[in-house]
Design a protein around this nucleic acid. Structure first.
Length: 661
RNA sequence: GCGCCCGUAGCUCAGCUGGAUAGAGCACCGGAUUUCUAAUCCGGCGGUCGUUGGUUCGAGUCCAACCGGGCGUACCA
């Protein structure tokens, strides 16, 4: 029996033998077969005749015609035509589509084939524990989780790993805070909240002293920039050569922007100073703990060198910190197969450095142990001059562990694009260290911006806490759900607990969808109104489309099991029916592109298109009201397929699909 | 200074290894409803794809230069 596959895959399979006789690089020609962007050209188009013709010296249209004569498409396509300079336009036969549709009814994978499985580790989210998660962790968590789901659905053997920062300087701060400022009764009741408070307090006090000592120098620096700017202005003014003048103006602009940067730093310092100076309690603490930064670092160093007391505190704090993280992940609907953080790799680091040195990869430089890459000026520092290891060391240990322990073939890092250089060096070093067979990819992503196009911050300039962000999304969505339910023509349909659960699906779904539907490499502007809008390209629109279908089933009291056994009734007569099913049949194509490009937005686009087609179908084709039983059954089957596709697709995004809303 | 990224409609963004007349959402204008849930559908308005050259049968997509913006650049992770 023929295997079930998307129309595009099927067409490519038919073209493959023909192309094999024309070129060595069949793959690249096959990739030039795609769906038509304009329906008047049919359903699919093959664009490969033109480039092939150029190589062979044949007229493009003639070569296209030759391909059309050879390719076996009779059962698949209604028309196959050569058009324009040498395009081949294909229109699918409706009976073929119907046949596929009937088969997909019985396929729990909705026609998506399993791929050749690879062992993949996907590393995402990776927050520092003991610090509250903030909006910066959103993209990694959401994109990483989506890719994990898609890769697994396609058939890969996936391990998700949350590489938490559980061994860093923040623990020295907490330990210091615990020793000096802890409120025992709060700690007993709410350890996580108290630890977070201690972290913030120590951070605040240490920033205060830092600001105190650096402020005068910074002010001086800004003044000196001012002088240089004035000087440069004069120089530029009296410059005769146009090109020189331009250069000077450019340099001047750079000076100004650097000065602005310093001013910003200064004003943030000043506000930190003011916060403490204006609060006599804090001021007292600050005075009493003048050396706090150094002492906190000392606590970290003690922890790292095996101090028993600090180790005991770490053992006590960590489970609480993990609980706090889990709390956020639960709200977000994200979970991991492994949570192997920095502390897990800590015992292996000395050996990594020794090994790198032995193999001649790492050398001493200015007291630090570094690996230098040929085409990169900055080194990869695996051990600092004070003897401490860095995240570079940990990352190398992690690669070794993942390869040796899991047999990993592909390693994905879903991490901010600003760390590109680190990953470039990591990959380079790993390759030379003997891990050239592992495919390591930095799945980078852009920054979440506020309305001011600066990185998203609260009004007071703090980072936005992730948990409160999620709560706000749910609260806003809940209100929208209630308003909408109250406004229904036949009265409200949802009880309180349903409203809550729909609110959660729409709120969390909205936030995730807004993130996923952008190209991951772009920065994007965070906007509540857009992500929860009742109209447009949002999670709610897709969820709503699905809920309407389920409304039909509910109202018609449809038994889906027996409906599906009636698959032979499925027909695609109306253009909206045909269009809808053709869209469903391309689910596999969308997922393949998501995998190839690591881009979830190709899946959101697919789902938005699907929901759009469904809405058109819903408008054009009555289902329950249809009097002809056969047509009615056929449309119900199509509804069922659509709902399953939408639900599955949303699940791959990590978004719930309520049956009623 | 060096390196990386970006510039597409009034706004926010897509554009899938170059393909036919550049798309969507929002906003704006007009139409459809005694709803199989209007959180909907249909239509309209709107772009010299930063600029200039180049490669190509064909360029938003590739190359070069320039203009404008962002990020990163040795002991933070």
């Amino acid at each position: 029996m023929e295997s079930l596959m998307s129309a595009l895959q099927e067409i490519r399979n038919r073209f493959a033998p023909v192309l094999a006789g024309l070129t060595d690089d069949v793959e690249s020609s096959l990739s030039m077969i795609r769906s038509s962007q304009d329906p008047k050209f049919g359903d699919f188009q093959a664009n490969c005749a033109m480039p092939l013709a150029k190589k062979s010296g044949v007229a493009p249209r003639d070569l296209a015609q030759q391909m059309v004569d050879q390719v076996q498409l009779d059962d698949l396509c209604e028309t196959v035509e050569v058009a324009g300079p040498g395009f081949i336009n294909l229109k699918l036969r409706t009976d073929w589509l119907e046949q596929q549709a009937r088969r997909i009814v019985a396929d729990d994978r909705l026609g998506v084939q399993q791929v050749e499985p690879k062992k993949i580790v996907i590393d995402y989210s990776s927050p520092n524990v003991a610090k509250p998660m903030h909006v910066g962790h959103l993209r990694s968590s959401v994109i990483g989780n989506c890719l994990e789901r898609v890769l697994r659905f396609l058939g890969h053997d996936v391990i998700s790993d949350n590489h938490i920062g559980d061994w860093g300087t923040q623990f020295g701060m907490i330990i210091y805070g615990y020793g000096n400022f802890v409120d025992e009764s709060t700690y007993a009741k709410e350890p996580v909240a108290e630890l977070a408070r201690l972290y913030r307090l120590v951070n605040q006090l240490s920033d205060y002293h830092d600001a105190c000592s650096k402020q005068p120098a910074l002010e001086e620096q800004i003044r000196s920039y001012g002088d240089r700017i004035t000087g440069s202005e004069l120089m530029a003014e009296f410059e005769n050569s146009e090109t020189e003048k331009k250069k000077k103006k450019k340099a001047l602009k750079k000076l100004r922007s650097e000065q602005d940067g310093l001013r910003e730093t200064l004003s943030s310092m000043q506000s930190k100073l003011e916060t403490i100076d204006s609060d006599s309690e804090l001021k007292k603490l600050a005075t009493a703990h003048a050396d706090i930064a150094r002492l906190a670092r000392l606590e970290t160093a003690k922890l790292h060198s095996g101090d028993e007391g600090n180790r005991a505190l770490w053992d006590e704090f960590l489970p609480e910190c993990l609980k706090a993280l889990d709390h956020v992940y639960e709200k977000l609907g994200v979970s991991f197969d492994k949570t192997l953080g920095e502390s897990f790799y800590q015992p292996m680091l000395a050996d990594v450095v020794a090994n790198l040195k032995e193999s001649g990869l790492a050398t001493d430089s200015d007291g630090a142990v570094c690996v230098f890459a040929e085409d990169n000026a900055a080194p990869f520092i695996v051990q600092k001059s004070d003897g401490a290891f860095t995240y570079a060391t940990t990352d190398l240990a992690t690669i070794r562990y993942r390869v040796e322990e899991f047999g990993t073939q592909v390693m994905l890092y879903v991490v901010d694009t600003r760390q590109s250089e680190h990953f470039k060096l990591l990959m380079d070093t790993a390759k030379r260290w003997g891990y050239g067979d592992v495919e390591i990819q930095h799945v980078n992503f852009g920054t979440v911006l506020g309305d001011d196009r600066r990185p998203f911050k609260t009004r007071s300039g703090d980072t936005v806490g992730l948990e409160s962000l999620l709560d706000e999304a749910v609260a806003r969505a809940y209100k929208i759900v209630c308003d909408n339910d109250d406004a229904k023509p036949n009265g409200p349909e949802l009880d309180e607990s349903e409203r809550r659960s729909v609110g959660e699906a729409v709120g969390i779904g909205g936030i995730k969808y807004a993130d996923l539907h952008h190209n991951r490499e772009s920065d994007y502007v965070f906007n509540w109104d857009k992500m929860l809008a009742k109209t447009g390209d949002t999670a709610a629109y897709i969820q709503y489309a699905n809920a309407r279908i389920n409304g039909i089933f509910r109202k018609g009291d449809i038994d889906l099991e027996s409906l599906r056994s009636d698959a032979e009734s499925l027909r695609l007569e109306h253009a909206s029916e045909r269009g809808l099913f053709q869209q469903i049949l391309s689910f596999e194509d969308a997922l393949i592109v998501v995998e190839r490009e690591m881009r979830p937005n190709m899946l959101t686009q697919f789902l938005f298109d699907t929901a759009n087609r469904l809405s058109s179908f819903y408008q054009d084709c009555p289902v329950l009201k249809e009097e002809d039983d056969a047509v009615r059954t056929s449309r119900l089957l199509l509804c069922d397929l659509t709902s399953r596709t939408l639900t599955q697709g949303l699940e791959l995004l990590g978004i719930d699909a309520p049956k009623q809303m």
